[in-house]
Every structure is written in C-alpha cells, then in structure tokens.
C-alpha cells in the first residue's frame, strides 16, 4: 500500500501542477500568438479550436506597428517617465527616512513611525476621491506631478529600508562623526552603497505601484497627452472592439514589461511582497 502511495504521489503532483500551469499560461500564450496575426486571421484557429491557435503563423508585427501610430506609444513613454521619476525620487526620500528611523534618536520618533506604518495600510482606492480634491486644490490635475508625487513617499519602502539599515552596525556613524563627516555624507557614502538589495526591492515596489496603477491615473488626468499605459489599454479595449489583434498587442506589451523585469529579480519581488506581511 505504502509503495503504491509513494509511486502515485509524484504522478498526482505533476498532474495537479501542470493543469494549474495551463490556466496560468493559456491566456498569455493565446494573447501573444494572436497579437502576431493579421486582423483577418485572429480567430481563425480558435473557433473551432486547433493547436495552431497558439502558433502565430502567418506571422506579422502589423498590430504592434499600428498601436504605436495611435496614442499607445505616447502612453508608453508617459508611463516610463512617471515610473522613472517615481523610482528616483522614491528611493532617495524613502531610504533617507528609513536611515533616520534606523540610526537616529529624536523626540516624537515612535509617533512618526506609527504614522508611516499606518499609511502603508491605507489602500489607494480608499483615498482616490479625496486625493482628487487635494490634487485639484494644488492645481496639479492633468499634469505629470499629479501622477508622480503621490507615488513617491511610500510607507512600505521606508519600512523595508529601516529593516535593512537595522542590520548595519551603528558604530559606522559614530566613527564617521568623529572624523567630522556630515550625516548626509555618512548616508550617501557608507549606507547607500551597502543597501543594493533594499534599493532593488524598494525600486521594484515603486515601479510596480506606478506601472500597475489604474484608478488614480484614470481620474487624475483626462487628456490623452498624460494618459498612462493601463488606462490607454482599457480605452483600447472598450473603443477598438473590432481591432482584436491590436487589443492583444497592447495587452501583451503592458503585461510583458513587468514580467520581464520581475523574472530576473524574482527573489526581490517575493521579498517585497512578503515583507509587507512580516510586520503583521
């Protein structure tokens, strides 16, 4: 009996894992294949189903060429710019804050740190509408500032940097102080170079936050000039219902960019997600 069981276990395991894999991968595979087909052929092998539905022959990049001639190319550039600005600003501000929470003592520290912890539990959907009012009062609606500024300060990133800097001995600071180094010099020349893993994890969090954002870019900017890629894709989906291959192409680009970035940085991606749970 036990022998049968131990022979059967791997078979069942592979069957379960592979069938799940099919559900995960099928939409991607079908979308990629369909995005590389001419419009007239998009559904030719899907209904009735043949395996050729997953093989892009005849092959054409027509759909990709077309979407870049429309607003999609602009949206892609906008998103890259917004992500880059958020990552640059976010890494600087949040690592600086994490450094202070980890290494300095000052009155009110625990209250301020509690505020930081609370903010990363505030879901962005809850504050989207009042944030719209704030942006309107600041006069930044329909600007890049509206898209970038709310994404820079990030409680989770501050928390991750603090955790990381906690592992680095504080003696370094005292030694540098005795030598007359400024605190910013200590931060910039000693702590920042040591914090590459935290920088990657935090950078990934900031990037994914902006790349995958939907509700805020939808309401904070209305002109196509500032439109971001997720919203552009959604408009594409609802407005160009018949241009199937272009819909597939837009979806593939918006999906593959984060995937290509996450795959080599998987360890950091998992840490970043699991990191928000370790505090609980």
């Amino acid at each position: 009996m036990d022998k049968i069981k131990s022979r059967l276990a791997p078979v069942l395991w592979y069957a379960a894992v592979l069938s799940g894999l099919l559900i995960v991968l099928l939409p991607f595979a079908w979308a990629i294949a369909s995005s590389l087909r001419p419009l007239s052929d998009v559904f030719r092998y899907t209904t009735p189903f043949s395996l050729r539905a997953l093989v892009p022959i005849p092959f054409t990049l027509e759909a990709y060429a077309n979407i870049f001639q429309k607003d999609f190319g602009r949206a892609l550039l906008n998103t890259v710019f917004v992500c880059a600005a958020t990552i640059l600003g976010g890494l600087l501000l949040n690592s600086l804050a994490g450094f202070v929470f980890s290494k300095l003592r000052f009155p009110g520290k625990s209250i301020v740190f509690t505020i930081v912890l609370v903010t990363f539990m505030i879901p962005s959907e809850v504050i989207a509408i009042p944030l719209y009012m704030v942006a309107r009062n600041l006069g930044i609606l329909n600007t890049y500032a509206a898209l970038i500024l709310p994404g820079i300060a990030n409680g989770l990133a501050i928390f991750l940097f603090k955790q990381f800097f906690d592992e680095i001995p504080s003696d370094l600071i005292e030694a540098a102080r005795v030598d007359g180094a400024s605190l910013f010099y200590v931060y910039g020349r000693i702590f920042v170079p040591l914090s590459k893993p935290a920088m990657i994890t935090a950078g990934l969090i900031l990037f994914l936050f902006q790349w995958n954002a939907f509700l805020w870019p939808l309401i904070s900017v209305s002109s196509p000039a500032h439109r971001l890629v997720q919203v552009a894709m959604a408009y594409f989906h609802t407005e160009n219902q018949v241009l199937w291959n272009e819909q597939f192409a837009a979806t593939v680009i918006v999906a593959l960019v984060p995937i290509m970035i996450i795959l080599p940085l998987q360890r950091y991606f998992v840490q970043g997600i699991a990191g928000s749970g370790t505090k609980g």
Binding site: L93, L96, I127, L149, I152, A153
Partner: peptide
C-alpha cells in the same frame, strides 16, 4: 547628531505621506 537633522532628512517623505495619504483619508 542634533534632532534637527533627523527632522530635516525625514521631512520630504513624511510630508509626502501626510499630504497624499493621511490628509485625504
């Protein structure tokens, strides 16, 4: 280091959180 420096370094991030997270809430 004086607490003043701590506040200075914290200010940008904390202001960001207050304006774009706490105040809207």
């Amino acid at each position: 280091y004086a607490p003043f420096i701590a506040y200075l370094f914290l200010a940008p991030a904390i202001l960001g959180l207050l304006i774009f997270k706490v105040y809207p809430l």
